[in-house]
Amino acid sequence: MERNRLDEKKTRAPSGAAVPSAVLTEQLYRAFLEEWAERGFAALSLERVAARAGAGKAAIYRRFPSKLAFADAVLDALGPSVALPEDTGALESDVLSFLLRLRAVLRHPLVRRILPDLHAEAARSKEMRAINTRVAAARRDLGRALLDRAVARGDLPHSLDREHALDLLPATLYWRMVVIGRTPSTKELRTIASSLSAALRRL
């Protein structure tokens, strides 16, 4: 969910104007994220989401039967914005590429505010837990592809504990950016990538 993807379509049509379906859907997605970030999912109002998007509430219900279904669709639509890191040919530089892409996602202010609330809601609601699990699985698939490439190249052993490795890959960056609220520099990411690569080789 990179910054430019969230910011690229802020223009809203005047109330009552015809809006292409795809454009309106993007506007509704952004409005939903803004409302979620400001108020939390529990207090999120679909009426306010519609107003932010310059649309009627009916525009939402034509697309989504409930607030939960709307959240699921928004997170699913934003998923592809995190692409598989490039194959650099070496483990440490692959890990650095992964961290750089993850930092681009986590540094967006909406994402930083929504993620903790998503996890909190997942602890209270089995439906939100299912959504959170699916989002996490998609992210882990990217890390799994990175690890598989490293194993195929001989950079990591075939006996690698992949689940442990997948926990390690994002952990330091997520802790610093989402829990502590500090964005590491590229120099710091290089150090993290070096430490992670060394740890992965020992798993």
Results as ranks from 00 to 15, higher is better:
residue 160 L to C: 10
residue 75 L to I: 06
residue 8 E to L: 05
residue 192 I to E: 04
residue 98 F to R: 04
residue 59 A to T: 01
residue 137 A to V: 02
residue 175 W to R: 14
residue 14 P to C: 14
residue 24 L to K: 15
residue 63 R to I: 03
residue 86 E to I: 01
residue 80 P to R: 12
residue 143 G to H: 10
residue 73 A to M: 04
residue 166 L to M: 15
residue 135 V to G: 06
residue 64 F to A: 08
residue 169 L to H: 07
residue 163 E to G: 13
residue 84 L to W: 11
residue 105 V to L: 14
residue 37 A to H: 11
residue 123 A to Q: 01
residue 62 R to T: 02
residue 200 L to R: 10
residue 162 R to A: 14
residue 105 V to N: 14
residue 180 I to D: 04
residue 107 R to D: 07
residue 48 R to W: 10
residue 151 V to A: 04
residue 188 E to V: 01
residue 120 A to E: 00
residue 59 A to F: 03
residue 5 R to I: 03
residue 164 H to K: 15
residue 58 A to R: 13
residue 186 T to L: 06
residue 117 D to M: 03
residue 88 T to C: 07
residue 81 S to W: 05
residue 81 S to G: 02
residue 129 R to Q: 00
residue 38 E to C: 09
residue 90 A to C: 08
residue 164 H to W: 15
residue 173 L to R: 01
residue 150 A to Y: 12
residue 4 N to S: 10
residue 158 H to M: 08
residue 35 E to M: 11
residue 170 P to K: 15
residue 197 S to P: 05
residue 34 E to P: 03
residue 59 A to P: 03
residue 45 S to Y: 14
residue 64 F to M: 07
residue 117 D to W: 08
residue 66 S to P: 01
residue 92 E to F: 03
residue 106 L to I: 04
residue 163 E to S: 15
residue 25 T to Y: 12
residue 34 E to N: 13
residue 133 T to W: 10
residue 75 L to V: 04
residue 73 A to E: 06
residue 145 A to G: 09
residue 182 R to W: 02
residue 11 T to M: 14
residue 18 A to C: 02
residue 86 E to W: 02
residue 187 K to Y: 02
residue 91 L to Q: 08
residue 24 L to V: 07
residue 143 G to K: 05
residue 75 L to M: 13
residue 52 R to F: 13
residue 23 V to C: 09
residue 97 S to P: 00
residue 198 A to G: 13
residue 3 R to E: 06
residue 186 T to W: 04
residue 163 E to V: 12
residue 29 Y to M: 11
residue 186 T to P: 00
residue 138 A to P: 00
residue 141 D to T: 10
residue 53 A to G: 13
residue 192 I to R: 00
residue 16 G to P: 05
residue 17 A to E: 11
residue 6 L to Y: 12
residue 8 E to H: 08
residue 166 L to G: 11
residue 149 R to G: 01
residue 177 M to S: 07
residue 31 A to Q: 13
residue 147 L to Q: 06
residue 170 P to G: 14
residue 14 P to F: 14
residue 72 D to P: 00
residue 180 I to N: 03
residue 166 L to R: 15
residue 169 L to T: 05
residue 74 V to A: 10
residue 180 I to S: 03
residue 2 E to M: 06
residue 6 L to D: 06
residue 38 E to Y: 06
residue 78 L to P: 01
residue 161 D to R: 15
residue 62 R to N: 08
residue 165 A to I: 03
residue 188 E to F: 02
residue 16 G to A: 12
residue 173 L to Y: 03
residue 115 L to Q: 09
residue 110 L to F: 11
residue 72 D to N: 08
